[in-house]
């Protein structure tokens, strides 16, 4: 049985390899911006609640599984990361900040996808959508969510995985 078939049968929110691939992708990409990052303890919420104020989202398709990966940031963490990465000071969410969150999401998904596909998962290429505002982010999701929390020196950010099956 391929890993993708196993993924389709088990609960993806409890799949350690899937979780680890996204955690490693997040840590590598955020570190590359010059930002220290600490991983928190993953947890599952029965209903999606937006954790950040800006999010990059990617539809996740592998075999029969359909889900959404959301990389969300609170204001202070995204401003801190962009200051380290681009040497730019931002104090409000604007198109430049949104574009940068899209690129970070693209890189994190790309790293995780490479790891998982080399294990046989079969994730497809996808282009992220960036959404701002907690209410809008919430409207894209329904159901149980795996939350992978992270912190930097100045704020919090999250990977949120929801699965429709």
């Amino acid at each position: 049985m391929s890993a993708a078939e196993k993924l389709g049968q088990g609960n993806p929110l409890l799949d350690k390899r899937l979780v680890n691939a996204f955690v490693e992708g997040m840590v590598e990409v955020i570190k590359s911006t010059g930002t220290e990052v600490k991983e928190g303890k993953p947890f599952v919420e029965p209903q999606f609640e937006a954790k950040g104020s800006i999010a990059g989202m990617i539809g996740m398709v592998a075999g029969d599984m359909r889900g959404t990966i959301t990389i969300s940031f609170d204001d202070s963490s995204v401003f801190h990361i962009l200051e380290n990465w681009l040497m730019e000071h931002h104090d409000q969410i604007n198109d430049e900040v949104a574009d940068a969150v899209g690129e970070l999401t693209n890189q994190i998904y790309g790293k995780a996808k490479t790891t998982l596909n080399e294990l046989g998962y079969g994730f497809e290429m996808a282009i992220p959508t960036v959404i701002t505002g907690g209410g809008k982010i919430k409207s894209y999701h329904d159901g149980a969510t795996l939350i992978l929390p992270f912190t930097c020196d100045n704020g919090n950010f999250f990977i949120e995985i929801t699965v429709e099956r």
Binding site: L86, E96, D99, A100, G102, E103, N106, I127
Partner: peptide, 9 residues
Amino acid sequence: DDFATMRKI
């Protein structure tokens, strides 16, 4: 690149 951020970098 479709992301202006990466073009900028």
